[in-house]
């Protein structure tokens, strides 16, 4: 059984479909393009959570389903857990309104 799932080939994150442990090695073959990702899991990642497939710089878009799901609030390393601690939404942000 696969450990992580990449939904769209444009994605810079993948979904853990098994809990990942720090130090785990994950190899992902993207059949459609013959792309192979080799990842070292940077920290424990729970089932259903996201792992960075490549380095994502602060302010860069986080891509899943081939679409932006938010932007990075800090630099994210390849293999790092991607979640609310390093990604924020750009929608429904009443807290950012002026006045």
């Amino acid at each position: 059984m696969q450990k992580v799932l990449i939904i769209d080939e444009e994605d810079n994150v993948a979904v853990a479909v098994q809990p990942l442990k720090k130090g785990d090695e994950v190899n992902i073959n993207l059949k459609s393009r013959g792309k192979v990702y080799k990842l070292k899991v940077y920290e424990s990642i729970p089932f259903g959570h996201k792992i960075a497939l490549k380095e994502i710089k602060k302010g860069e878009r986080v891509i899943k389903y081939g679409q932006a799901i938010g932007k990075a609030t800090k630099n994210i390393d390849k293999g790092e857990h991607v979640h609310t601690h390093n990604v924020e939404s750009t929608k429904g942000r009443g807290d950012l309104q002026i006045g």
């Binding site: 979904v15 853990a16 729970p46 089932f47 259903g48 959570h49 996201k50 986080v62 899943k64 389903y65 679409q67 932006a68 799901i69 938010g70 991607v82 979640h83 609310t84 990604v87 924020e88 939404s89 750009t90 929608k91 429904g92």
Partner: peptide, 15 residues
């Protein structure tokens, strides 16, 4: 949703 791994409303919506 967040505990389950969904980070933003965009991610939830696309799914």
């Amino acid at each position: 949703n967040i505990r389950g791994g969904l980070t933003t409303i965009e991610e939830k919506s696309l799914g």
